[in-house]
Amino acid sequence: MAALLNVPTSAKAGEIIEIKTLISHPMHTGYNRDDNGQPVPRDIIRLFTCRYDGAEVFRMELTQAIASNPFIVFSTIATASGPFLFEWTDDKGQVWRETATITVA
């Protein structure tokens, strides 16, 4: 799966920054059937988290109601230069991780 991140590379201390993520995932709800009429097992991204400089700043639990390729937007406050760690976990236990770094002046 591929993930796209839109994170500012720099910000002023105390500034509110917007973060956007998009991950490619089919998000099978478990309600659909394949070409042979068999149920397609549920396989959705069930958890998304973001850590900023080691501290969790955003957590989202997803359900079947979310569309394929979830696009998530949230804000946080720029407090220090450091890394963002993004993590998506699906029903099968597969985990995708991406990182981005911000410089705070």
Rank of each mutant, 00 (worst) to 15 (best):
E18D: 03
N69G: 07
L62K: 06
V7P: 01
G37E: 04
T103F: 11
T101F: 12
E56Y: 09
P39Y: 03
P41A: 10
M27W: 02
K12R: 11
F74Y: 12
K20R: 07
W88F: 15
S81P: 08
H28E: 11
A105Q: 13
G30R: 05
R97Q: 14
K12T: 06
I45C: 09
M1D: 08
D35H: 13
E61S: 15
W96T: 06
L62C: 04
E61D: 13
T76L: 15
D34W: 10
A13Q: 08
G54N: 12
S81I: 06
A80N: 14
E98T: 01
A80W: 06
G14L: 08
R51A: 01
G82F: 09
A11F: 00
G30A: 13
F48N: 06
T49W: 02
C50V: 00
I102F: 08
A105W: 02
L4I: 01
D43Y: 01
D34G: 04
D34S: 08
G82P: 06
L62E: 08
H28S: 15
T63P: 06
T101P: 05
N6D: 11
L4D: 01
F84N: 02
I16E: 09
T101N: 15
S10Q: 14
S81G: 15
C50K: 00
G82S: 14
G30M: 07
I45K: 05
N36A: 12
E18N: 03
H28R: 12
L62A: 08
P39G: 07
A3H: 14
P8G: 02
I66D: 09
A3C: 14
S75V: 10
T99I: 04
F74M: 12
S81C: 09
E18L: 00
A100F: 00
F86E: 04
C50R: 00
V104R: 02
A13G: 03
A3I: 15
I16N: 12
P39W: 05
M60C: 14
G37I: 02
S24V: 13
T9F: 09
V40M: 09
A100N: 04
P39M: 03
E15H: 13
H25Y: 04
Y31W: 10
R46Q: 10
W96F: 05
P83K: 12
E87R: 02
T103Q: 15
G30V: 07
I23L: 03
D90N: 13
C50A: 14
F58C: 09
G37L: 02
D43E: 13
I23Q: 01
E18R: 00
E61V: 13
R59A: 12
G54P: 15
L85K: 14
A3D: 04
T101H: 08
V57K: 03
E15G: 12
M27Q: 14
T9Q: 13
R59K: 15
E87T: 02
D34C: 11
M60D: 08
T76D: 06
R51N: 02
L85F: 10
L22N: 05
A65V: 13
H28D: 11
E87F: 01
S68E: 09
G82E: 08
L85S: 12
F48T: 07
F48A: 03
K92C: 06
F58P: 07
A67L: 10
V7H: 01
Y52R: 04
T21L: 00
Q38L: 10
I16V: 15
A105S: 07
N36D: 11
T101Q: 11
